[in-house]
Write a protein that binds this DNA or RNA. Structure first.
Lengths: 225, 225
DNA sequence: CCAAAAGTGTTACCAATACACCCATGG
DNA sequence: CCATGGGTGTATTGGTAACACTTTTGG
């Protein structure tokens, strides 16, 4: 690594969060309305600058907490965007994180303050800067990873039904899946535990609730849907 | 994004390059010997700070060029390391890039100036800071991607033989592959074109040279080994 | 003629796909 | 009793993995 900089480096480092939610049986993103120039009036990812003594992962968690009031949310780094002219307000390099939250659990009041709104991923508004590209990377990454890692459960409550889970996967992958094949795979995962209780709210017959057992999963570390 | 910083942000942004090569039938990394404190005497990835008006991708290419004299080298961003205490000399966030180069083509003189040396990935020296973790991510990423994208050809000369290609894959994946299964897959890829010429240097019988035809590949965009 | 590496096909198994009917219940 | 969504099994196909001998030629 070069010891000396020719001139003092003047680059600001930010994080931006791509926040996924599964609402009304659709995969959605939480975006904030930008109330200041440049690009005032457009929508954007929620972001913030990294503190001097703050891990960048912590910065992403803080930004998410400020917006939603939620802590200990599952987040993954996606990638870093660093074109010199990506932000028209100055030189800012931004590392993106994707997060998955439950609409039912966040703090409506905080979200309201930020003028934030959910948008289905199929129907996003115009975003500032390179945020559309960021969203694209995050969605592609999610689609890749969701088949091999049990991360999608972060978008469902602790107890969920198989019809719900299937709709979630269909929403994420944006394709329809065969019910019987889907359920066969699920039934091979011993860490997806069927409860005695049924969800009677969606049908007359009722659908069994399941839960994801992390302990059991950690013994196999093997997931495929 | 927050408009104002509570106090001026004092974070330096760097790039570090994980440079892969395939030498002596082994997958190797090019590392530089650190001649200054802290961590003097250990080995490290080659890195450098990002210029104020420089895309981070360009910074990675510049750093690689400074070391090797090579331009237009295939590079991919891996991920960004941003723990507050990762670099004991101050707050530095580093984005890592992986590159693949041919030992035969680089500029020995430049490399010598940097006190750089190749190490087989199975036998790396102690690295400074979190560079071992960076190397780990880059190798895992390479192993994942090499099966689905034709990127390994960057580690071979334009003309290569199938025994060479197979040894490369075995070196990258660190497992041995079945020759006939490997060759069946290769023969399904029409963009791997067999030349008339044979390489007589490795055997009496001689092995046909092949080349990777990028144009043809771009029509299929489908790769699997 | 032999050592050393290059080249070649078939079978067995597992995973993914396609597909249609019965079940339970509230109204 | 019927409309609605929940739940179940089988046959086919395609891809992956395992496996051993023949070919070429310089020395």
């Amino acid at each position: 690594m070069n010891k000396k900089l020719e001139q003092k480096q003047q680059i600001k480092l930010a994080v931006d969060c791509i926040i996924f939610g599964f609402n009304n049986n659709r995969l959605e993103l939480l975006l904030v309305h930008r109330g200041f120039e440049p690009e005032k009036g457009k929508w954007s990812l929620i972001g913030g600058f990294v503190g001097n003594d703050e891990d960048i992962d912590d910065a992403a968690n803080r930004v998410l907490y400020d917006l939603s009031g939620l802590e200990n949310i599952y987040m993954e780094q996606v990638r870093t965007f660093g074109k010199a002219d990506r932000d028209s307000s100055g030189r800012v390099v931004s590392t993106t994180y994707s997060a998955m939250i439950l609409k039912s659990e966040y703090n409506e009041e905080r979200v309201g303050k930020y003028d934030a709104k959910w948008f289905p991923i199929e129907d996003l508004p115009e975003l500032i800067f390179d945020h559309s590209e960021m969203v694209g990377s995050a969605i592609r990454r999610l689609r890749r990873r969701v088949r091999n890692f049990p991360i999608a459960f972060n978008l469902l409550p602790a107890k969920f039904t198989l019809p719900q889970l299937q709709m979630l996967y269909e929403g994420i992958l944006s394709e329809s899946l065969d019910k019987r094949n889907f359920r066969r795979k699920v039934s091979q995962m011993n860490y997806l535990v069927r409860l005695e209780e049924k969800d009677m709210s969606e049908s007359r017959k009722g659908a069994y609730f399941y839960r994801f057992d992390e302990e059991l999963y950690n013994k196999e570390l093997n997931f495929n849907l």
